[in-house]
Design a protein around this nucleic acid. Structure first.
Lengths: 145, 145
DNA sequence: CTCATCTCAGTAAGACTGATATCA
DNA sequence: CTGATATCAGTCTTACTGAGATGA
């Protein structure tokens, strides 16, 4: 069993996930916070629906995530004047600072995650995972509802 | 962000985990069931404590897992005569058959998980993950309690 | 008494489902 | 009315914490 690719994958990911989670927790953040802030910084303000698609965070979890980030003043949630069903969520200046801090933490952790691999091996691994992820992202398997 | 190794790792693992979960669900099982049955088949009967260490399943989850498997007659839980605090958990004949079935399901899924990779790339990936996992397994990081 | 073992209740993160209110 | 959007409550899996109970 300990040689099953899916096992190796999920277990390594578990460690990576734990390390990242701990790193973010040290500065009082969670994975969703980082993901949403990054998405906002990379692709700009958007409706919650759009942010959900971009970040991969489920709409219902997005609500709570935005609540939390808005409470700390990292994002702003404003009704869209052109479509009053929508909220436009955008990054504040404080949010940008916050993201820089989280980014530092996360980048530092990449090194701990990949610690036992050489530079070449790291590249190899990222490429292989990139192929895997692209494949499964575009072939939802049975995730269609 | 979508190039972060930890992101690639956790997201690919998520797909793998989902595929395996679906495959097991189709035959009415969960990950813990497969892991415990495999551990019992590979290393033989043991106390719950020992099984927890071997399988990586937390002692408190092991209780429920064994309950479920015992109810279906796949494992037997008997008090250890030499130490009445302990239960000795062992695989039944039905449990062996059950494991063969789950094994088939899981093996079939490996192919779906690794679909876009060549044989050589699969070997590469498994080796890299093996290194990662060994590293993090032996260096609990901050998992010490 | 201390320590190991097992059990039970509860928590946490991430992903997801289903129901509802609002509005286009 | 239909369909999109946001919100709310709850489920599932895996992992873990803390509090007992039993017995070595």
């Amino acid at each position: 069993m300990t040689e099953l690719p899916s096992w190796l994958l999920t277990q390594s990911a578990l460690h990576a996930h734990r390390l990242v989670g701990e790193g973010l927790a040290e500065v009082g953040a969670r994975g969703y916070h980082y993901r949403l802030l990054t998405t906002l910084a990379e692709d700009g303000p958007a409706s919650q629906n759009t942010l959900g698609r971009r970040s991969g965070i489920h709409a219902s979890d997005l609500v709570a995530t935005i609540n939390e980030l808005a409470e700390d003043g990292y994002v702003r949630r404003e009704p869209d004047p052109s479509d009053r069903r929508r909220n436009v969520v955008s990054l504040t200046a404080e949010g940008r600072r916050r993201l820089r801090r989280l980014d530092t933490a996360v980048q530092r952790i990449q090194d701990r995650v990949l610690a036992p691999l050489s530079a070449e091996q790291r590249t190899q691994l990222t490429e292989l995972l990139r192929i895997l992820l692209d494949h499964h992202t575009n072939r939802p398997g049975s995730a269609a509802t």
